Amino acid sequence: QDAKLCERHREKLHYYCEDDGKLLCVMCRESREHRPHTAVLMEK
């Protein structure tokens, strides 16, 4: 099964943002929008 990719950055989605309920890639996780949020690394 292929991992889902971030629509914005075309990177694999490794994080779940608990504040927004969205899946994030590393680039999104470090963005100004999500940096202050609680995001957890998803298990494989």
Rank of each mutant, 00 (worst) to 15 (best):
H34R: 04
E18F: 01
H34P: 04
G21T: 03
Y16C: 03
H37N: 06
K12G: 09
D2N: 10
K4N: 15
T38N: 11
L24E: 07
C28Y: 00
K12Y: 09
E11A: 06
T38L: 06
E33K: 08
C25K: 01
D2G: 15
M42T: 05
L41T: 08
E30M: 05
Y16K: 11
G21V: 01
H9L: 00
L5W: 03
L23W: 12
P36D: 08
L23P: 05
C28P: 02
K44L: 05
H14G: 12
H9R: 01
L23R: 11
C28T: 00
H14A: 14
K44D: 14
M27W: 10
L23E: 12
L5V: 10
H34W: 01
K12W: 05
E30C: 01
L24P: 12
E30K: 09
E43V: 04
R35D: 10
E18Y: 07
V26D: 13
Q1M: 15
L24K: 06
E11S: 07
A39S: 11
L24H: 06
E11D: 01
D20P: 02
L13H: 01
R35W: 06
H14W: 10
K22E: 15
E18T: 09
K22R: 08
K44M: 04
S31R: 05
M42H: 11
M27C: 14
D19Y: 07
S31N: 14
M27L: 11
C17F: 01
A3H: 15
E7W: 03
H9K: 02
C28S: 01
S31F: 01
Q1Y: 03
R35S: 09
E11L: 03
S31D: 10
M42K: 13
C25M: 00
R32Q: 12
C25L: 00
H9Q: 03
L24R: 04
T38M: 04
E43P: 12
D19Q: 13
H9M: 00
C28A: 00
T38I: 07
L5I: 04
K44C: 08
L5H: 01
K12I: 08
L5K: 04
A3T: 15
E33A: 08
K22H: 05
R32A: 14
M27A: 09
G21L: 00
K22M: 11
E7L: 06
H34N: 11
R35E: 12
M27I: 15
G21P: 05
C28E: 02
R32F: 08
R35I: 03
H34Q: 08
E11R: 08
Q1D: 04
E11K: 09
E33N: 09
H37I: 01
R35L: 07
H9A: 01
K4H: 15
D20A: 05
E43G: 09
L24S: 05
L23T: 09
L23V: 07
R8M: 10
L5R: 08
M42E: 10
K44V: 06
A39E: 09
Q1N: 06
M27Y: 11
E18A: 08
H9T: 02
K12Q: 02
C25E: 01
R8K: 14
R32I: 10
M27D: 08
R35K: 12
C25N: 00
R8V: 14
C25V: 00
V26S: 14
D19W: 04
M42R: 10
R32P: 14
L5A: 04
K4Q: 14
R29E: 09
E11M: 07
R35T: 09
E43F: 02
H37D: 05
G21Q: 11
S31Q: 08
L5D: 02
P36Y: 02
C17N: 06
M27G: 10
K22A: 12
L41G: 10
R35G: 09
E18P: 04
A3S: 15
R10C: 05
H14L: 15
L13F: 14
R10P: 10
L23M: 13
D2R: 12
D20F: 12
H34A: 05
M27T: 13
L13K: 13
C25S: 00
K4L: 11
P36A: 14
Y16Q: 08
C17E: 05
C25G: 03
D20W: 01
C6G: 00
D19L: 03
T38E: 08
H14M: 14
G21W: 01
S31K: 02
C25Y: 00
P36I: 03
V26F: 07
V26C: 12
R10E: 09
S31E: 15
C28M: 00
L13W: 08
Y16S: 07
E30N: 11
L13Q: 08
C6D: 00
A39F: 00
L41Q: 13
P36M: 10
Y16M: 05
D19V: 09
R10N: 14
L23I: 04
C25Q: 01
R32Y: 12
R10G: 13
E11C: 03
L41E: 14
L24M: 06
K44G: 14
H9F: 00
D2I: 09
E33S: 06
L24I: 06
R29Q: 05
E7H: 07
A39Q: 11
M42F: 08
K44N: 15
D19N: 06
C6V: 00
L41A: 09
R35M: 08
Y16F: 15
E7Y: 14
R32T: 13
Y16H: 05
E43M: 07
E30G: 06
R32G: 12
D2Q: 14
T38Y: 02
E7I: 08
D20Q: 08
D19R: 06
H9P: 00
T38P: 04
V26R: 14
R35Y: 05
H34K: 06
R29L: 10
R8H: 15
R10Y: 10
D20K: 10
K22I: 02
D2E: 14
L5T: 10
P36R: 12
E33H: 01
R10L: 09
